[in-house]
């Protein structure tokens, strides 16, 4: 990809008029048209989280920073709750992947079940996160009392927002897989261009699965950063040049 790009940059466009007439990308049926924008979007979100984590590392090197793990009395010294939440989100991801593969094999019923499971476990994850917040809050770990707490609430909240955004796409997709929202009549001239229902579902699921896997990776990062000990931060910060 990048090599291609560099080769492209060396073309001399004033030579050979007519010679190359590449097809329009949008006319190609083998390309999921929304995949590129989603990847770009996830790239932006990555920068967003990356910058938070970089500031996290920088901030962790100030003396007032009290990590949430590392000492026995810290809430994430035994991060069982975090592991449980991880499991919930992982199941949701797997379910979405199953739904995608089932759709590719035209097995719509399996897909429907898997999709419902994915939604269920995603909601479970969200609820579990809220419980975790309440738990910490009751222990007296308020948002403003320490930067480590601030980052924990902030990052999980943003991750939650990201997840809610995903639900806005996933829920309609699920409904569509059950046959809702099918256009009643389509104008005749458009019909040939509308991809068949199965392919449309497959495209949507590809996007959802990618999105959920990404959510999962981000979650792992947040997990890692919040449940590490000060020594780990120190090493990482040293690697980053702080």
């Amino acid at each position: 990809m990048s090599l291609n790009f560099f080769r492209t940059l060396q073309e001399k466009p004033w030579l050979q008029p007519d010679a190359v007439l590449p097809e329009r990308v949008m006319d190609r049926s083998d390309i999921n048209p929304k995949k590129l924008p989603l990847i770009v979007f996830l790239g932006i979100v990555s920068v967003f989280f990356f910058l938070f984590l970089i500031t996290f590392l920088a901030r962790s090197q100030y003396p007032d920073f009290q990590a949430l793990a590392g000492e026995t009395w810290q809430p994430f010294y035994h991060p069982q709750q975090l592991w449980i939440n991880t499991g919930l989100l992982l199941i949701a991801c797997v379910a979405l992947q199953v739904a995608l593969m089932a759709t590719r094999r035209q097995n719509i019923h399996t897909a429907q079940i898997a999709l419902c499971l994915a939604l269920l476990f995603t909601l479970q994850f969200g609820a579990a996160q809220l419980l975790l917040w309440r738990h910490l809050y009751k222990l007296g770990f308020y948002m403003a009392s320490n930067p480590a707490n601030s980052y924990f609430y902030l990052l999980t909240a943003l991750h939650g927002l990201h997840l809610i955004g995903g639900l806005f796409v996933l829920v309609p997709v699920i409904l569509r897989s059950f046959g809702f929202f099918r256009p009643a009549t389509t104008a005749p001239q458009q019909r040939p261009l509308q991809p068949p229902r199965q392919q449309q579902l497959q495209y949507s699921l590809e996007l959802c699965a990618l999105y959920w896997h990404y959510l999962f990776v981000i979650w792992l990062l947040i997990f890692f950063f919040n449940a590490s000990s000060p020594a780990v931060y120190k090493t990482l910060a040293a690697l980053c040049g702080y």
């Binding site: 492209t8 940059l9 073309e11 001399k12 466009p13 190359v20 007439l21 590449p22 097809e23 329009r24 990308v25 949008m26 390309i31 048209p33 590129l36 924008p37 770009v40 979007f41 932006i44």
Partner: peptide
């Protein structure tokens, strides 16, 4: 800006007409 920008990037990369290579 993000909504607009996603649109611009996708449009430039995917909606160029026949023969519109990047270097043209």
């Amino acid at each position: 800006f993000t909504m607009g920008g996603l649109n611009y990037v996708t449009t430039v990369l995917q909606a160029r007409t026949h023969g519109m290579t990047l270097m043209r």
